[in-house]
């Protein structure tokens, strides 16, 4: 129940302003432009670079989203209030991480056309698998992201610390998501790259458990 209340609160907040979502989508468009100008791909090479660029962009977008979802409450000092709620702290972690997961997923879906149009992401090759990869990867990012944002954003230098801690922890996910996306969109059969999906799911399961067990300690006053 508390989980749903927190989730609903964050969704309601976002729906009122659509501030984070707009920022995240426009940011991905900006980054794609920068990538396109910085790398000057030969047309036949685009296919090999695009999945990596896309996930790199989504990683930056994820940080932007975390700064919004968790930073908003820091600004208004509402986070400390939220922590005083008489509920299990792990529910706060799960609620906020789920809200972030949904936000990230919607932002990605909205900015997908940018990659298809400008970087020739061959999405039509395997849309079903692509959605699967998107779902599991976002779950993994949200599991670690919610935890790291929960701890770093209460610190004075939190905005700077967040990506510094988050990105190295997420290296296996960046590798797995990029490899899986390349393989899926190149039309390889699922059995040849399913180990990347399993790696991402294992990562998600381990870090969600770690989050549930440790969030209580980082949320203490």
């Amino acid at each position: 129940m508390a989980f749903l209340t927190i989730l609903a609160k964050d969704i309601r907040l976002e729906l009122r302003t659509r501030e984070s979502l707009a920022a995240m989508v426009v940011f991905s468009l900006t980054v794609v432009l920068l990538f396109a100008f910085a790398f000057d791909f030969a047309p036949d090479l685009r296919g090999t670079f695009t999945p990596g660029l896309m996930w790199l962009t989504y990683f930056f977008v994820a940080v932007l989203g975390l700064l919004r979802v968790f930073g908003q409450e820091k600004q208004l000092e509402a986070y400390d209030l939220l922590l005083t709620a008489p509920v299990d702290r792990s529910l706060i972690y799960l609620g906020k991480s789920t809200a972030f997961f949904l936000l990230l997923l919607v932002a990605q879906l909205l900015s997908l056309p940018v990659f298809v149009l400008f970087l020739e992401l061959p999405l039509a090759a395997a849309p079903g698998y692509f959605i699967l990869i998107l779902l599991v990867t976002d779950l993994a990012i949200a599991a670690v992201g919610g935890l790291v944002a929960g701890l770093s954003l209460r610190a004075p230098a939190g905005d700077t610390l967040l990506p510094i801690i988050l990105f190295p922890l997420l290296t296996p996910i960046l590798i797995a998501a990029t490899k899986a996306t390349s393989a899926a969109l190149a039309g390889q059969p699922f059995a040849e790259w399913d180990f990347w999906i399993m790696l991402i799911i294992t990562f998600f399961a381990l870090f969600v458990l770690a989050g549930i067990f440790t969030f209580d300690y980082i949320a203490e006053q």
Partner: peptide, 13 residues
């Protein structure tokens, strides 16, 4: 990761 760990030790309040 541990460079981040030491930064947290120094700068996380």
């Amino acid at each position: 990761i541990f460079l981040g760990y030491f930064m947290v030790r120094e700068f996380a309040g």
